[in-house]
Design a protein around this nucleic acid. Sequence first.
DNA 1: CAGCAGGGGGCGG
DNA 2: CGCCCCCTGCTGT
Length: 653
Amino acid sequence: MEGGGGVASVASLTMDCEDMFKEITKKLYGEEATVGVSVGVNVGSVVGVEFPAADRDLQDDDLRPEEHITAWGLAALMQNGFPPPGILQANFTPRTDPSAEDRWTAAEEPLAWAHSRVAAYNPAQRLFKCTDCECVGFLARVAEHWLGTHSQARAFQCPLAGCGFASGWARAVRQHLARDHHSDPAAADHLLRDNPALDDLTRYLQRLKSKVEAARTERRTGTSNTSSGTPNQAVDATAAESNVVGGEAGKRYACTACPYATDRRDLFTRHENIHRDEKPFHCYLCQKQFNRADHVKKHFLRMHRDQPYDLNRIRRSSGGKPATNAGGAVGPVGAVGPSGAGAVSVAAGGAAALFCAKASDAAGALLAAPAAAALECRAPPIKLERSPLAKTESVGSPATQHKPSTSSPGERRYACCYCAWSGVDNWCLKRHLNTHLKPFACALCEYKAARAERLATHVHKVHNKKACAKCPFLADDQHQLALHLRDAHHIESRNLKVPSGVGRTGGGGGFSSGAAAAPAVVPAGGGQVAAAAAAAASGGVTSQPAGVRRREQRAAGAARLFGYLEASDGSGDEYEPPPLPPEYAAQQQQQHATPAVTHAQHAAHAAHAAHASHIPHSTHAAHAAHATPHFARDKENAAPLHHAMHHDHCLRY
DNA sequence: CAGCAGGGGGCGG
DNA sequence: CGCCCCCTGCTGT
């Protein structure tokens, strides 16, 4: 009996663990996923040259191998809580080729100085898996991870003479510089770029990748392609060096650190910068650093509107100004010790880096240095004056920068005509307008929300349904939604991530902001079209050429909210603001003496008419009738289509 | 809810 | 290359 109790307690302990694990997986993957999740018990040694992917059949409703939580990941989760949304979710979408050789292949020869094969490569997923801990990620991230976590080599050293500090993480050195030397961490920027160990590691993995890819290509075509092994002959030297394989189908330049691929060299170059920690541009007033010049400008116009913007001063000299964005707190903390809790911590911290293409974001969030706040001249908020300015951007060419101080620069404001609010950019206005218009309507009741996630919450809590983000479909549960997504929208239930349910009132246009938007009124049988449109617009796979798609998005953009702003500089004729929703009309009437007031009447319709050319009349009608909502993928960001109808009631000045 | 930063892409010089 | 637009995510209030 007692013995039975012991067994029982052991059993219950086991159950507790299982329950805990289920709970975790449930949170991560949803209810249905728990069955399919396996704790990535270290598949054992990695000495073999090849080891298969998880030995499971890939059912439609099942999770793919790469979606499993590895033991490492689980440990990280348990220690650090749940990962940011980017991880294990949308951002991490390793491509899988169901029919493919889903195998992890390691190099035949270990990397000499490392005495390790470092990582195995999976051509189907284009991902590397660390041989020491099964972390999975893109080349650069895995290389960085392995060097920092598993390598005994402290490859990165403090550049200051006499200081013997060294670490396997470049970020550790940066942090060390800032913390211990109060020095400019930017001085260590070159560490990541020019480190011989990291370079060697990268080349080693790159060779592995090339070899595996080439072999794969040969297997597929049955013939050996050209000697280069890449179909993209046009890949230039830089791209070829960084990724011989090429990226997304047909793209000339593919990033080795993330799935990004493009045909444009300038975009690729620009993109590369985001994987480096260097930020070659800075705001010369507050010293905040940026990796793009236009971001400096945007920042400047937001934060220092009363100061003249000088393009020539934003590029940082190599000497380095006082840096504000110190290196990582992520890597170094746990990096010192490659084992034990530290390692877990590293792993957890690095999870974003490894699993999320936006690793820099994740790091950056942790690294944001408050020191940047020590601004010499943070511009006081501009007092709004409602004098209509015609696009007074004094920030253009250097020649126009030094205007008389009487004309303060960048006074262009985006004002709401329903209230006294004004924002610094178009997007702020768009989003703000949603608070008045509440475009996210529940299909089951009268509830309206200003934000998609609120509607989703409402639908879930009140109606106990899961809303499809792409159509009015309401599922009873996660599983049903996943099936629906797969069947109706051809979207695989990756991690069963459920887009927030978005139903919109109005549905005034044929498209919504850049993101997916099915036409508001979809005739029966038009579902496929709608789905296709949604899929295309969602930025995902589309059969359209990118240019065409972009142009259409632009055209749609013109038709949607505030496109008119680009046509109207506020100096045009005035026009009447469109009617508010009834509940606001009265309210606003009392609150404001109509700021919308004297809006130019012009263009509203001129621009609008032009825009409307892209909008089927039926959708206008739909809007007028507040008929079927239309749906968009992008939460509150996408300005509702009927904004296109209403867009002319706000004024940029 | 709003401010802000960061990323992708189009366009023109 | 610079500028612009759009979209997204994070964060503070």
